[in-house]
Design a protein around this nucleic acid. Structure first.
Length: 454
RNA sequence: GGCCCGUUCGUCUAGUGGUUAGGACUCAGGGUUUUCAUCUCUGCAACAGGAGUUCGAUUCUCCUACGGGCUACCA
């Protein structure tokens, strides 16, 4: 059996993390079975179309490592993976349904009165009509791979519109025809589609097509358990990436929302996910998107990653915060310091701000800054740094330890005032690193400022 | 309202007809680090409720409650 799966978003804007997870599960499933992953653009609602959305979608997905085997490479008119280019195909199928009495034309929303009528093609020319699918009155069982058999009473379902007045198909029709034409073997999609699956099954039945396997994924939830949406934190993949969440971490985190490998591991590369992913281990209930845990996981990735490999990404984000990167070697040092203690790259900016702009003093330590002993420390350090030609961290360390012996001060009493003067707070990087990055001039200036403070 | 799906620590989850119900995030506390962070150790914390089946149910069945999704000429 050939395994073909698809991710079928509508181009209405940015890629949502829920969409990313659906795409990911499709991708993992396809790769694992040496099948194909198809990208299909469902743009049958002309009013909701957003320019550039397709390129955007593809770019976000690609950044996260999800590559399609088939799909539109660009938004070109002859592309078969974009539904708006397949209108004539849908029309042919509508004709088939109409001719076999599986569907009927309606001239207004009071559709029941048209249910038993039929019109030939000539009668429909120059009229404004839509087409509805006749849903029979029997019971129907849908098989979902995760939930098992689900019974529906079809008499409770209204005849759905399959062709709109503007002659575009609705989702139900286009989706079924495309899945068949693209030889989709497994439909992996969000749980919100479960209630409309019987409509799709009826369509398959009318066309006498073989059903794909249906796999409905549990929803991603807001902290209040409603369906994940904006308003309660951000959900756009782009936003996460721009804030400096690493694609690998985002993918890892999202993979574990609704699926688990039945062991206690938490960190997975994409290849490990491909190896271990299993439909059977997908959860039935929805999963709250916990930003807290994503932060932790992103931090784990940040700790492990080589500074060199994120330097250009960091540069973009630091420059977005108006920090100019002058020296690459220094910047790597800064990254190495910050990535150990940050959740995201945006966090790293915050952690390292005093490297770039003169800090204001933490008011809690005002007294320490005014202290006579502190002032003495500042002036002694100032003297010693002033005579240095080029600054090495080891040298600074030595100077400070000599200073410690000279005035008999050590530990916090020694480091707090110095760090306060140079960094604005008693906590921060190693003093050697601060001075090394700051350079002689800025170090002297900050010591001077602290000396005069009060 | 109707239909459908779901329910193990606050969150992500493991698990079993008999377990001290396990792990991770968060939180709290200890240790390491002459700062902070990292790291590490410890702790707090869950089987929605009620019947039934059974020697025994968190686990199987039913009911209730609660939560969510869908109910568009949106996907």
């Amino acid at each position: 059996m050939n395994i073909n799966v698809r991710f079928a978003p509508s181009p209405t804007g940015y890629l949502h993390v829920g969409g990313l997870r659906t795409a990911l599960y499709n991708y993992l499933f396809a790769k694992q079975h040496k099948g194909n992953l198809v990208l299909r653009i469902e743009d049958t609602d002309q009013s909701r179309k957003v320019d550039g959305a397709i390129d955007n979608l593809i770019e976000s997905l690609n950044k996260c490592g999800i590559i399609f085997d088939k799909g539109p490479t660009e938004y070109s008119t002859d592309n078969l993976f974009i539904q708006s280019n397949r209108l004539s195909i849908y029309h042919e199928h509508v004709t088939y349904l109409l001719e076999n009495n599986y569907a009927y034309a309606c001239f207004d929303d009071d559709f029941l009165q048209y249910r038993d009528k039929s019109y030939n093609k000539e009668q429909l020319i120059d009229t404004s009509y839509h087409v509805r699918l006749k849903i029979p009155n029997n019971e129907l069982t849908v098989k979902d791979e995760i939930r098992g058999d689900i019974k529906f009473d079809l008499s409770l379902i209204d005849d759905p519109v399959i062709l709109k007045t503007d002659q575009f198909p609705t989702y139900h029709l286009a989706n079924v025809i495309d899945d068949h034409d693209m030889d989709i073997s497994h439909v992996i999609r969000g749980e919100e589609w479960l209630p409309s699956t019987p409509i799709h099954v009826v369509l398959y039945d009318y066309f006498q097509w073989e059903l794909p396997v249906f796999i409905h994924l549990p929803l991603l939830l807001n902290p209040d358990k409603s369906k994940l949406s904006k308003r309660q934190g951000h959900v756009s993949v782009d936003e996460f990436l721009n804030e400096g969440y690493l694609p690998e971490a985002l993918i890892n985190f999202i993979a574990l929302l609704g699926w688990n490998p039945k062991n206690n591991n938490e960190i997975f590369s994409i290849n490990e996910l491909i190896e271990q992913f299993n439909i059977k281990n997908i959860q039935k209930s929805g999963a709250v998107f916990d930003i807290n845990k994503l932060n932790w996981m992103n931090g784990e990735y940040l700790k492990d990653i080589q500074a060199e490999s994120i330097v250009s990404l960091c540069k973009i984000i630091f420059e977005k915060h108006n920090f100019t990167i002058e020296d690459n070697t220094d910047f790597i040092k800064i990254i190495n310091f910050a990535k150990q203690r940050s959740h995201t790259i945006a966090d790293m900016v915050e952690q390292t701000t005093p490297f770039f702009v003169d800090p204001s003093y933490n008011v809690e330590y005002r007294d320490l800054l005014l202290d006579k002993q502190s002032k003495r420390l500042f002036s002694l350090l100032l003297e010693q740094v002033a005579v240095l030609n080029n600054i090495e961290e080891s040298e600074i360390k030595e100077i400070i330890s000599n200073l410690s012996m000279e005035i008999h001060v050590k530990g916090k009493e020694l480091f707090f005032p110095i760090r306060l003067a140079l960094w604005g707070d008693v906590h921060g990087p190693d003093i050697g690193l601060i001075i090394k990055i700051l350079g002689k001039e800025k170090t002297l200036a900050r010591l001077n400022k602290a000396l005069k403070y009060g």
